[in-house]
Amino acid sequence: MSEFIVEAKGVTKVLGHGAAQVYALKDISLSLRRGELTVLMGPSGSGKTTLLSVLGCMLTPTSGAVRVCGYATEGADAKVLAKLRKDHVGFVFQSYHLFPTLTAAENIQLALDIRGMHGEDARAKSLDVLEKVGLAHKSSELSARAEWGRATTGRDRARHCFQTVRYPRR
């Protein structure tokens, strides 16, 4: 098994058609190890989001190869990509996108629910991660109404929480 958890070789992503065609990524290669922290930096429009989308199995490259946890993404359909994301990829999004009608704990449980963890196990897990970021006492507050849902620091902590449960391999 490869020592790399994410590998990209000669990845090119072309967006648009004809005269509007743009090379968002051109011949990108990289390898990321398990447990490694990598920061991707670049000016606006340089292709960071496109690269993250390709590495996060949301987009497939126009050419080149991507392997995530040993699984190749080229030629994979939307269903296979969704399963790869569910099983192997975690996200911390720029915006929060919390369901405003669910409580803090329920938002975390939702992330677990789609991965097949339900009921008491999911509830215990959600409380556990909320405890870790100091939000256990806000677990039953609706995200639309709760202070943590409005305050940036609180939301960041909540976001970290969701990242914790969504990220399958640490």
Partner: peptide, 18 residues
């Protein structure tokens, strides 16, 4: 009204059925 949240679910790998 909830497109962003549904998109988040899809990004996280939720099935269409869910």
């Amino acid at each position: 009204d909830h497109l962003d949240e549904f998109a988040t679910l899809r990004a996280m790998g939720s099935s269409n059925g869910y």
